[in-house]
Simulated assay, not measured.
Amino acid sequence: MDSNVPQTKLQVSFVTISEENATQRIDNFLITHLKGVPKSMIYRILRKGEVRVNKKRVKPEYKLNNGDEIRIPPIRVAEKTTPEISTKLNKVADLEKAIIYEDDVILAINKPSGIAVHGGSGLSFGVIEGLRALRPEAKFLELVHRIDRETSGVLLIAKKRSALKALHEQLRLKQMQKNYLALVKGNWPSECKVVQAPLLKNVLKSGERVVKVDKEGKPSETRFKVEERFDFATLIKASPVTGRTHQIRVHTQYANHPIAFDDRYGDNQFDMQLADTKLNRLFLHAANVKFIHPKTLQEMQLHAPMDDKLQACLNQLRNDKYQQTESLK
């Protein structure tokens, strides 16, 4: 074994569960508590009875109680850094600048386009890994919800398990309102205010997720409102009632008004019409989110401004519209 690789100390440790972690499954607690330990090892030590709760063996689905004492056996794990984080320090620094709100229980960022919310599918770096690198002292940082890699805008992160549970409950009860801005092909009809179409998710062999409207899919609903019209495009506000994967992107495609520069559900001819705007990213932006603060119980609304590329695209379309109007006078 390479002596230059730092190792964790081999010793039994004991953890007393606080109210913050009560009702959480023991396996999920250990996965979070023992960062860097493979899940297979966690389930192995549970199966062998090396993990004890109040001196007794427990199954992975055991739900913790306030005051439980957990015995964690010695585990040798190389302390590794994520190579992609170390090579993307600029992106980590950008996350610090992207924070639009933070208190002791929640944090919100204006997520840049092009960065995933978490590692996976061949990516070791994502927003949550970056934030954990920025906040090494934080005991708890978890995503409240997700937005697509190419989508920008408001993303909520919980700093306490109690906040995560409260916000997830708001999502479940559809009490959290999220509004997106999207530039879509053609003239979106004013009377099209709601799209209700069931969505079915397929995972290809490559790991890529593709979603389509299918009667066998899950019920899905998005509300729409026209914000601004241009010659061959419309800026719309999209408010998802349900939270399915790629929901807004597929619902706009289903309505025959796909989003600009959507590499999965878009329209190449429409993208070519936008060449003068120099846009080269999906025009979908999580503009604001409204929810009840999990600690103060006050209604909050957080706003995220569009990035320069989206703003420049709109400015160019407005300028073209103005020039056309002037030429008709």
Results as ranks from 00 to 15, higher is better:
residue 60 P to E: 08
residue 200 L to M: 07
residue 320 D to A: 04
residue 70 I to F: 14
residue 316 Q to A: 13
residue 279 L to E: 02
residue 67 G to S: 12
residue 180 Y to T: 05
residue 177 Q to A: 09
residue 14 F to C: 04
residue 251 H to E: 03
residue 187 N to S: 14
residue 329 K to L: 14
residue 237 K to T: 11
residue 3 S to W: 11
residue 274 L to G: 02
residue 45 I to W: 14
residue 268 N to W: 00
residue 251 H to A: 03
residue 172 R to W: 03
residue 123 L to W: 07
residue 92 V to W: 01
residue 161 R to A: 11
residue 278 K to F: 06
residue 164 L to I: 01
residue 119 G to H: 04
residue 152 S to F: 13
residue 246 H to F: 06
residue 306 M to I: 00
residue 325 T to W: 15
residue 189 P to N: 05
residue 302 L to K: 06
residue 317 L to W: 05
residue 121 S to F: 06
residue 149 R to N: 14
residue 190 S to N: 08
residue 23 T to C: 10
residue 307 D to R: 02
residue 267 D to P: 05
residue 279 L to S: 03
residue 180 Y to M: 04
residue 259 I to F: 08
residue 90 N to P: 00
residue 111 K to C: 04
residue 51 V to T: 08
residue 312 A to Q: 10
residue 24 Q to V: 05
residue 242 T to P: 07
residue 16 T to P: 14
residue 308 D to G: 01
residue 253 Q to D: 00
residue 110 N to I: 01
residue 250 V to C: 06
residue 212 K to W: 08
residue 245 T to F: 09
residue 128 I to N: 00
residue 277 T to I: 07
residue 68 D to P: 01
residue 201 K to G: 07
residue 150 E to V: 10
residue 172 R to F: 09
residue 96 E to C: 09
residue 21 N to T: 00
residue 312 A to F: 01
residue 254 Y to H: 14
residue 182 A to Y: 06
residue 94 D to M: 07
residue 131 L to T: 00
residue 196 Q to A: 13
residue 260 A to E: 11
residue 52 R to S: 04
residue 33 H to N: 11
residue 25 R to V: 02
